[in-house]
Nucleic acid binder design. Sequence first.
DNA 1: TATCGGTATTTTGCATTCATAATTCATAAT
DNA 2: ATTATGAATTATGAATGCAAAATACCGATA
Lengths: 227, 227
Amino acid sequence: MTAPTIVPRLNLHDTVTTALRGMILDGVLAPGEKIAERALCERFGISRTPLREALKVLASEGLIDLLPRRGATVAQITEADIRDLFPIMGALEGLAGELACARVDARDIRHLRALHDQMMDSYARRDEHRYLRQNRKIHETIFALARNPALSEMYQQILTRIHACRFILKKCDRDWAAAVAEHAEIMDALAQRDGARLSRLMRDHIAGTSARIALASLDGNEERDAV
Amino acid sequence: MTAPTIVPRLNLHDTVTTALRGMILDGVLAPGEKIAERALCERFGISRTPLREALKVLASEGLIDLLPRRGATVAQITEADIRDLFPIMGALEGLAGELACARVDARDIRHLRALHDQMMDSYARRDEHRYLRQNRKIHETIFALARNPALSEMYQQILTRIHACRFILKKCDRDWAAAVAEHAEIMDALAQRDGARLSRLMRDHIAGTSARIALASLDGNEERDAV
DNA sequence: TATCGGTATTTTGCATTCATAATTCATAAT
DNA sequence: ATTATGAATTATGAATGCAAAATACCGATA
């Protein structure tokens, strides 16, 4: 029997889950904001049933808080969350780097090199928005090269949970330069297929990012303990 | 303001989620088995609404597969899943070990030592069931000592997903001896608070477990590609 | 003015209902 | 006998309805 052709059988609650997730990621629904079921239903033009199913899923992803009998709120990421999640991300990135090293071929390396060069170009132009997008693309590509879907999924889930962080990233120029230097090393280790070194570099790169974020949020004067 | 006292405000869908998860873990619902909504509703004495909400959550945890318009089935773990998930577990265990090392005090070490000795006792008596339970307890304790709730949660989630594996573990005596030896080393590294070494040991311990499982399932003659 | 108490309103959780897609079963055709 | 076709049955997806809890409102009292 051939592999089953998946014909897109969409259903409302999945669609709504995706839509809601997007709204939270895009900041349409702000962290801490209360989610009024009926209002959202009207907005989407659907009934409460599929919406509530979507809320359950997003809650289990950690994107919203669901308190019994008191409704849903968009999850606020705290400094404790960042302290906890970044080391995990670091461990996952380290693993991804190691696996990727073992599996890349010359073509993959050329592809990554191209992405890397593009990002360096954005850095040279100080195009922060483009830089961040390309940076993310590079990390995602390394995960893809690791050929471990479960790993990629976990990575994405953590990225999603700490989405709010991207707003405070790259505050000062020195941090940005440090991150760029780390990326150059990462590219180098990968080109040499040095898995152990790449693993260490990626873990430390994430740890560095974490430290830079933590520092940024300490002297930043935004909300008290939400980032 | 003091920390809010959470008074247990139970609701049906959470209860059902927990119950269903337990049924899957206990094997009451076998991997691959179709989950008939109405049958389960009658069994629980509830309506379909909370049950379906529970199914969505379990699907997002990877415990069941949910195909649009064709119902839910208990997820079957494949060899590919094991190949993917164990390295992730290894990375998480490694991180847990490192963090735990940085945070344990003498009392924690004594506690772990006690658990370790009990497990060794079970090994001496060849009490496999008790051994496995204590083994799990030790790993969970190390995660608890790491003081990273998000990390513990991810670990638990992966453990849950690969629950089916425990049935094929510890097949041969040599493997068991190897695992026991590794545990002795782990205990030692922790007592010495050698984070780097503990991290490496725990990661390799998981890798070893993975290899032993993979081998066991290769020469085992159970179902073709489900473990 | 601020706080308390009680009622009205809203919101949540769950059951029920309805429409539609999927499956089953019987029948016909090869 | 086996496969195809179509009607009957069943299951899923989503909307609606209803009871109970939480919140908002409002006047009374200190």
